[in-house]
Amino acid sequence: MIKVLIAEDMHIVRGALVALLGLEPDIDVVAQVASGNDILPMARSAGADVAVIDIDLPGKDGLTAAGELHEQLPGCRTLILTSLGRPGTLRRALAAKVSGFLLKDAPPDQLANAVRGVVAGRRMVDGDLALAAWDTQDCPLTPREIDVLRLTAEGYRTVEVAARLYLSAGTVRNYLTTVVTKLNARNRVDAIRIAKESGWL
Rank of each mutant, 00 (worst) to 15 (best):
residue 1 M to K: 11
residue 1 M to F: 10
residue 1 M to R: 12
residue 2 I to P: 14
residue 4 V to C: 09
residue 6 I to S: 02
residue 8 E to S: 13
residue 13 V to D: 12
residue 13 V to G: 11
residue 15 G to Y: 13
residue 18 V to H: 02
residue 18 V to Y: 08
residue 19 A to N: 15
residue 25 P to N: 04
residue 25 P to L: 13
residue 33 V to W: 05
residue 34 A to I: 15
residue 35 S to P: 05
residue 37 N to G: 03
residue 37 N to V: 11
residue 37 N to T: 12
residue 38 D to P: 08
residue 41 P to F: 05
residue 43 A to T: 01
residue 43 A to S: 01
residue 44 R to T: 15
residue 45 S to Y: 14
residue 53 I to R: 00
residue 55 I to R: 01
residue 56 D to Y: 14
residue 57 L to S: 08
residue 58 P to V: 00
residue 59 G to P: 08
residue 61 D to C: 10
residue 62 G to R: 02
residue 66 A to E: 04
residue 67 G to A: 08
residue 70 H to Y: 10
residue 76 C to R: 05
residue 78 T to E: 00
residue 80 I to V: 09
residue 86 R to I: 11
residue 87 P to V: 02
residue 89 T to P: 13
residue 91 R to D: 13
residue 91 R to A: 10
residue 93 A to F: 13
residue 93 A to L: 13
residue 94 L to E: 02
residue 99 S to Y: 03
residue 101 F to A: 02
residue 105 D to C: 10
residue 106 A to G: 01
residue 107 P to A: 10
residue 108 P to D: 07
residue 110 Q to T: 11
residue 111 L to N: 02
residue 115 V to Q: 09
residue 116 R to N: 11
residue 121 G to P: 02
residue 123 R to G: 10
residue 126 D to E: 08
residue 126 D to C: 06
residue 127 G to C: 06
residue 131 L to E: 06
residue 133 A to E: 09
residue 135 D to P: 08
residue 137 Q to V: 13
residue 142 T to M: 15
residue 143 P to Q: 00
residue 144 R to C: 07
residue 147 D to Q: 10
residue 149 L to A: 03
residue 149 L to P: 03
residue 150 R to M: 09
residue 155 G to I: 09
residue 155 G to M: 13
residue 158 T to P: 04
residue 160 E to T: 14
residue 160 E to I: 08
residue 162 A to L: 08
residue 165 L to D: 08
residue 166 Y to P: 00
residue 168 S to M: 00
residue 170 G to H: 09
residue 172 V to G: 05
residue 173 R to D: 01
residue 174 N to P: 05
residue 178 T to N: 13
residue 179 V to H: 00
residue 179 V to A: 00
residue 181 T to L: 09
residue 181 T to M: 02
residue 183 L to A: 04
residue 186 R to G: 01
residue 187 N to G: 09
residue 189 V to W: 11
residue 190 D to E: 09
residue 192 I to L: 15
residue 193 R to F: 05
residue 195 A to P: 04
residue 197 E to W: 15
residue 197 E to R: 15
residue 199 G to E: 13
